[in-house]
Design a protein around this nucleic acid. Structure first.
Lengths: 127, 127
DNA sequence: ATTATATATGAACATTTATTCATATGTTCA
DNA sequence: TGAACATATGAATAAATGTTCATATATAAT
């Protein structure tokens, strides 16, 4: 319990110098760590959720499939801003689109969107 | 099915002019939309996940409670950068800390962290 | 064909953000 | 008390990001 679990290896000078060294821990950490590309993709995904305009777009899409101009109106933003954000949402496969005449209708791409937002909400709402 | 669910209301000119207007949809959308502060907090939370350094820190903390210098070493980054990111993680209550002598040990604050990252991973890994 | 409508996109600008450097704070040990 | 160590923090800088404006593309209607 006073065991500090330092992953420090002896030959390194720039880390703290406590004596408790867990030889296996660094390997354990590296084993559980996804590769660089996965980490990058994961961060990119959450970055998409990290903007309130995009979050609001997703909340609209929870209710219905809507076209761009409806989103612009619902969120009181201009068409171009919405369109740019929709592109980002689509690139990360959170949203899909279909054309119907002049309009293009957007909807949620899968259920992860709801789950992720729901979990985030739980965290934000607790305490 | 060719019903377009437009939330357009008639007195507005800057939206598309299709005739199918769902009077109730705009209200429905507004009803399901969290208030502005919640949306802001939610976006702020996901913003925290939206950086690969912080994601990597969290993955280390999945394995063990570690001190700052260990994180710096494990991630091959300098102490200051890690410390700045830990502050952000702590402010959003994803991480907690305790002092033990000269060192400060960080660990995950709750289970939402794992759930959220797991869901994100699922999304990123599918297809 | 021409015009109008709906959406997409490139460039520009302002803002935010991550990292580094220097230094401050706080703890331990001699 | 003073030196050494671990961490935190403010300022500066470079890079990334969201919105706007102007304009391009694509469909529909006359």
């Amino acid at each position: 319990m006073t065991e500090h679990n330092h992953i420090h290896h002896p030959a390194d000078a720039e880390c703290c110098e406590q004596t408790e060294i867990h030889a296996g821990l660094l390997e354990q950490v590296n084993a559980g760590m996804p590769d660089e590309n996965r980490l990058y993709d994961l961060a990119e995904l959450f970055k998409v959720f990290g903007d309130s305009t995009r979050i609001r777009i997703l909340f609209v899409l929870f209710e219905a499939e809507v076209c761009v101009c409806d989103l612009a109106e619902a969120l009181h933003m201009n068409q171009s801003a919405i369109s740019h954000q929709l592109r980002i949402l689509k690139q990360s496969k959170l949203v899909k689109s279909r054309r119907d005449g002049k309009s293009i209708f957007y909807s949620l791409a899968d259920e992860h969107v709801k789950t992720i937002i729901a979990q985030g909400m739980e965290h934000v709402e607790e305490e």
